[in-house]
């Protein structure tokens, strides 16, 4: 039985004070205050309360709405491609590395996670240089595999058809270490006797994976999915590093995070608008909260019940 003590108030104050202070001033307060600021605007040099006008502007003024829906669409593409490529490949690699009979498992584990340890500035620039047709590293490799025909004439990052997908693929390549490590943790936590028992009953590797291991790691798959969802709304760095804050070509790689940055802090030739910035942040806040709540009250409970 766990018993808890009654605390002297001064002990409590000293124990919880510093953390609550730092957390409140630098995390909770700015988030709540940002929501409030989205209801204000600067009119003729004065800050006035405008109600929901900023949101109306964001959704109905073509100058904002075009960028907003464009960025939202790209965020959606980002999420779908991460779910379709990064997480299954991460799971496959984890399933292979978690096998107790595999030689060199520690080596593979270290190598697969290596790109994830680097800052996106390093990774983004490394790939930008390798994708550059002047240097031609990526194109050389494609030519080596007789895939030269798919190289776009304006370069991978300069063509509207390919820029977004390439930026997303670089992101997938870098962050695959996260689902890999999460899946690896839950796969190695599975009781080896369970697997042995199934093997004695004549189950093959393939059916052991799908019938026994996969159901056991479903909660992890849920966590990976929600982390992917939330992460995709913090995604800013990849596009900022590889395509700049104007998310070229022609806003073809724009994400909500970049749109937020550009609007709030400005970029070459545009005036920053702090209040429209907080409006975009508030909408992102709403989308993330909806997703997280749906996960906790819908998906996660079902995963745990099964």
């Amino acid at each position: 039985m766990r018993t808890t003590k009654r605390a002297h108030w001064h002990h409590l104050l000293i124990f919880i004070g510093p953390a609550v202070l730092i957390y409140s001033v630098f995390l909770a307060l700015p988030l709540v205050d940002s929501l409030r600021l989205s209801l204000y605007s600067r009119v003729d040099g004065e800050v006035v309360f405008v109600g929901l006008q900023n949101f109306d502007k964001l959704l109905n003024n073509p100058f904002f709405s075009e960028r907003f829906w464009g960025a939202l669409k790209h965020n959606f593409a980002w999420f779908v491609l991460f779910m379709a490529i990064q997480n299954p490949v991460g799971l496959l690699l984890a399933a292979l590395v978690s096998s107790p009979k595999l030689k060199g498992a520690a080596f593979y584990r270290t190598v697969i996670f290596t790109p994830t340890t680097m800052s996106i500035v390093i990774i983004g620039w490394a790939w930008t240089l390798m994708l550059n047709p002047l240097w031609g590293i990526v194109n050389d490799i494609l030519n080596f595999f007789r895939l030269g025909a798919i190289i776009p004439s304006r370069g991978w990052l300069g063509s509207e058809d390919t820029a977004l997908i390439v930026v997303i693929l670089v992101g997938i390549w870098q962050y695959i270490g996260l689902p890999f490590v999460l899946f690896l943790a839950s796969l190695t936590a599975i009781d080896e006797e369970l697997i042995e028992a199934a093997r004695v009953d004549g189950a093959t590797g393939w059916s052991i994976f799908w019938r026994i291991k996969f159901p056991l790691i479903l909660p992890t798959a849920g966590i990976v999915a929600i982390l992917t969802f939330v992460g995709n709304f913090s995604a800013f760095d990849n596009v900022y590093v590889m395509q700049g804050s104007t998310a070229g070509p022609d806003y073809g790689t724009d994400l909500l995070g970049v749109f937020f940055y550009r609007t709030a802090f400005g970029t070459l030739g545009s005036v920053p608008d702090l209040y429209m910035g907080t409006t975009i942040a508030t909408v992102m806040f709403g989308i993330i909260l909806t997703g997280v709540l749906l996960y906790f009250f819908g998906i996660q409970q079902r995963l745990i019940r099964d």
Binding site: A7, S234, F236, A281, I288
Partner: peptide
């Protein structure tokens, strides 16, 4: 310790797990 508001405090501190702090950057 058991103290008044400890559950609320734990929940309050946990809120930041899922919401990216950078959304509050303007403030």
């Amino acid at each position: 310790y058991s103290f008044w508001g400890s559950r609320f405090l734990a929940l309050y501190m946990a809120l930041g797990i899922m919401i990216p702090i950078r959304l509050g950057t303007v403030s």
